[in-house]
């Protein structure tokens, strides 16, 4: 199964001291390397802070935009890993090693892999 691990924290990289940010990124180098070797890795990205975000809606064909993320919370989405795991327990084991879990929290979400979704998203051959 595929799981998306959403990393949320109160402090994002941009708000850290240079030394702290460097150390934090080193931990990510190590973790990413480890899950690539173990075969769990499918993809990942770090996101710029929510201050760089814009939220848009289309209503009656008209686009309206507001600044910032769609939900203002203390914890900010800072990045994600897409992983492959046998089941939720394995996903939890992998996600618990994400460095950000020590400072903030990680939401583990199963990826929808029903036929209808796969077809709609152009993964019709099922084996992505």
């Amino acid at each position: 199964m595929k799981y998306l691990c959403l990393i949320c924290a109160e402090t994002v990289l941009e708000q850290m001291t240079e030394a702290a940010a460097e150390k934090h990124l080193e931990e990510y180098v190590e973790f990413t390397q480890a899950i690539k070797e173990s075969g769990h890795y499918l993809g990942c990205n770090r996101l710029l802070p929510p201050s760089a975000a814009i939220t848009l809606r289309v209503r009656n064909g008209k686009v309206t935009t507001t600044d910032g993320p769609f939900a203002e919370t203390k914890e900010q989405l800072g990045g994600y890993y897409l992983i492959e795991a046998r089941d939720l327990n394995e996903a939890i084991q992998v996600a618990s090693r994400i460095p950000g879990a020590k400072h903030g929290c990680v939401e583990v979400r199963p990826v929808a892999e029903d036929e209808q979704t796969l077809k709609a998203l152009g993964f019709a051959d099922a084996s992505r």
Binding site: M1, Y3, R86, D87, L88, N89, E90, A91, P110
Partner: peptide, 10 residues
């Protein structure tokens, strides 16, 4: 079923 909770003793 959806989250893939396994049938497993930890």
């Amino acid at each position: 079923r959806d989250a893939g909770i396994p049938y497993q003793v930890p």
